[in-house]
Simulated scan of single mutants.
Amino acid sequence: MKEWVEILLRSGVLFFCVLFLIRIMGKRQLSKVNPFNFVNYMVIAVVSALISIDMIDISLGLVSLGVWVFFSIAMDYLSLKSKWIHDLINGKAAILMKDGKFMEETLLQVRYTGEELLRDLRSKNVFNLADVEFAVMETTGEINVLLKSEKKPVTPHDIGHPVSPQPEPQTVIFDGNILNEALSNIGFNREWLKVQLDNFGVSLDNVFIAQVDGSGDIYVDLFDDNIQVPQPKVKELLYANIEKCQADLLSFALDTKDMQAKDMYLKNANKLKLLMEKIETYLLR
């Protein structure tokens, strides 16, 4: 067998082999892994490359891969069962700042300079050190910051203002193809989607991506960027219809001379006004 054919076959088989091994080792973002797992990935990559170009015997190389993968999975399993082993492998989080003050000894232990910490704080939109309650370095090297209570952005919860929950949006069209599973997840079908596209005046093959949120609003992005697609506002339209009904009832109450009818119109108009006050937060955000 020619050498290039052998390398081609080796590389193809190893590609799927390494893909399978990485999958069984778990899903991790490379930027989020700790140094131990990073070394595991690098060793697996190097050994696979050496096997691929026939620098080491394939049987010995596969044994080496198996050992690294096995011990990696075993250590991950033991880390789940024992905090001591978890801390031994992954390390512990380190508090770098507390009450706006640098923890110099901790910085020295983790080999981290004050300027590096300042840079990472700026990347978190923190420019005033006095605003920091504490800053912690995770085992992955990432810096997380907690601001002091008076410096945190105000949330609706802080002011007792209720907001509506936001269900996960579903992408229902991608690259001109309808995604049936996403449609069924939100209780719609292809016929409903086609009606929405007809309302926009666009064809399916011109839609790059379409996404439906939990309120039924659909966002459409077209291949042809010169076409402006109006985005419907289901919640706003619902609120506007209720508001119109309330205004109509008030108008009827003013127009009629029948006192019984007038009282009925006013009573229902007040009910709608109370309803609008309750749902305004949920429909108009």
Rank of each mutant, 00 (worst) to 15 (best):
L65N: 00
L65T: 05
L65V: 02
G66H: 03
G66R: 07
G66P: 05
F71I: 01
F71P: 05
I73F: 05
A74I: 10
A74Y: 09
M75Y: 11
D76V: 00
D76Y: 00
D76M: 02
Y77L: 07
S79Q: 09
L80V: 15
L80M: 15
K81P: 02
K81N: 03
K81T: 07
K81V: 04
K81W: 03
S82G: 01
S82E: 02
K83T: 14
W84E: 11
H86T: 01
D87E: 00
D87H: 00
D87A: 01
L88C: 04
I89L: 01
I89E: 00
I89K: 02
G91E: 04
K92C: 07
K92E: 07
K92Y: 04
A93M: 06
A93S: 07
A93H: 06
I95N: 08
L96S: 04
L96C: 06
L96F: 05
L96G: 01
M97W: 00
M97S: 08
M97Q: 03
M97V: 11
K98V: 11
K98H: 15
D99S: 07
G100Q: 13
G100W: 11
K101Q: 15
F102N: 04
F102D: 02
M103Y: 06
E104P: 03
E104W: 00
E104Y: 06
E105C: 05
L107E: 03
L107V: 02
L107I: 08
L108K: 15
L108Y: 06
V110Q: 10
V110I: 13
R111N: 09
R111C: 05
R111K: 13
Y112I: 05
T113Q: 03
T113H: 00
L117G: 00
L117V: 07
L117C: 01
L118M: 15
L118F: 12
L118D: 09
R119Y: 04
R119V: 12
D120I: 05
D120R: 10
L121E: 11
L121M: 12
L121R: 15
S123H: 14
K124I: 00
K124E: 10
N125R: 15
N125H: 12
N125Y: 14
N125A: 15
N125M: 15
F127N: 04
F127I: 01
L129W: 08
A130T: 06
A130K: 08
D131V: 06
D131G: 05
E133Q: 11
E133V: 10
F134Q: 11
F134T: 06
F134W: 13
F134V: 09
V136I: 12
M137F: 06
E138Y: 10
E138T: 13
E138G: 13
T139Q: 09
T140D: 15
G141K: 01
G141D: 05
G141C: 01
I143K: 06
I143S: 04
L146H: 11
L146P: 08
L147Y: 13
L147E: 10
K148D: 12
K148Q: 12
K148V: 10
K148M: 12
K148C: 08
K148P: 13
S149P: 01
S149G: 04
S149C: 02
S149Q: 02
E150Q: 01
K151H: 13
K152S: 06
K152F: 10
P153F: 10
P153I: 13
V154G: 07
T155S: 14
T155Q: 13
T155C: 08
T155I: 09
P156D: 00
I159P: 11
I159H: 14
G160A: 02
H161D: 08
H161F: 14
P162M: 08
P162K: 10
P162L: 08
